[in-house]
Design a protein around this nucleic acid. Sequence first.
DNA 1: TCAAAAGTGTTAGATTTACACCCATGA
DNA 2: TCATGGGTGTAAATCTAACACTTTTGA
Lengths: 225, 225
Amino acid sequence: MTTYYSEHSKAYVSVDCIIFGFDEGHLRVLIGKRQMDPGRGEWSLYGGFVRPQESVDKAAARTLFELTGLRNLYMSQVGAFGNIDRDPGERVISIAYYALINVNDYNEKLRMQHGVEWVNFNQLPPMYSDHRDMIRKARKMMKEMIKTNPVGLRLLPSLFTLTQLQRLYEAVNGEAIDKRNFRKRIKEMEFIEKTELIDKTSSKRGAHLYKFNLATYNEDRNFKL
Amino acid sequence: MTTYYSEHSKAYVSVDCIIFGFDEGHLRVLIGKRQMDPGRGEWSLYGGFVRPQESVDKAAARTLFELTGLRNLYMSQVGAFGNIDRDPGERVISIAYYALINVNDYNEKLRMQHGVEWVNFNQLPPMYSDHRDMIRKARKMMKEMIKTNPVGLRLLPSLFTLTQLQRLYEAVNGEAIDKRNFRKRIKEMEFIEKTELIDKTSSKRGAHLYKFNLATYNEDRNFKL
DNA sequence: TCAAAAGTGTTAGATTTACACCCATGA
DNA sequence: TCATGGGTGTAAATCTAACACTTTTGA
């Protein structure tokens, strides 16, 4: 092993995952009671340490997979959190990532095993260390991202109604959207395709189900919601 | 010392600074030839290691001060860069920050001592490790930031002409802006105040000098350029 | 006297917002 | 039959973008 930097000190580096879901009209975050010291019992994001032989991005993907059993989720780095005393035990610098998942894809048994819950974003409890800040920053970034990138669809099932989609955008933006204007804009997005399928679970009349068409999206990625 | 995480490994954590300046109509970045191994002689950002008793943000501010002798510069975190082999010597995770300075505030002697230069953003040489990626990401973030936040003024002297301001926005956005439309928008921003001073260095007729009024800005921070 | 940068308004087109009623169906 | 959510279009207001000439002055 080389020793170029031996006069400097090292730190533990961890990753923390802000996992967003959307259910019953509410934006949700997956959090659990911390099962290790220090901070045992406090509400916390799910995280893990970066291993010597994996990149930080890979560490985040691995951690996310450990928790959810899912791969190829949408992930994006939120940033590094590096206050001295952010971890009560030792110097730990953490890189936060947010991920978007469709809550139905997350196996309930696995969720229970890890002791994590979908908590309404607007009713977050006090949280361990700086995890609240991480969530806030992640939310802010996600809100921006969703305006010009259809990543929000990752929060919905692959077939969804326009009302579901609208509720999702309303939850993320934190304000109501006019139904006619919203549908007008969606109609212009050719990559959101109407199917002939009807969803009857949420109304007597039934609503058309739509799907995301990746190929069409790749032809023209320009939109602004 | 406690040992909560002793089964995990540590990494070196560094900070790298993308320092933007604006001069002669061009966006510039402060870079130098790397003076240490590994990578000696390659073009590189200025950086340093995070010390045990300082936060990552503080480490970045300190590093920036070491280089420029300036405090209270505008800084913003770009993100963590954590590929395994990003440093040829050892595992080093780096947190990048971008900063904005007025090139006239930077003492030439100090600049020479550190062996750094203002390089035109559009003519960057090949760079050490992932520093090119850091710069690109920083530029992207800065471009977004400048749309809704007058941080761009940090790149100009405290007194500036509207033409200078326009050239700055053009350099950052990478495209020409219509002069009349630009001035119309600036006129609506009450925090950009016309002074009675005239700058005669760039034209025979002379141009009014403007200044940023922080108090007015704090009254209403809304604008969009 | 002329070259070079400063300064100034109007209009057409595009985009955004506000707004209200009929439809289909199962309970 | 009625309550519930699904679905649809228009017009006013606002915002954006395009565009050209006059002014001042030092060389």
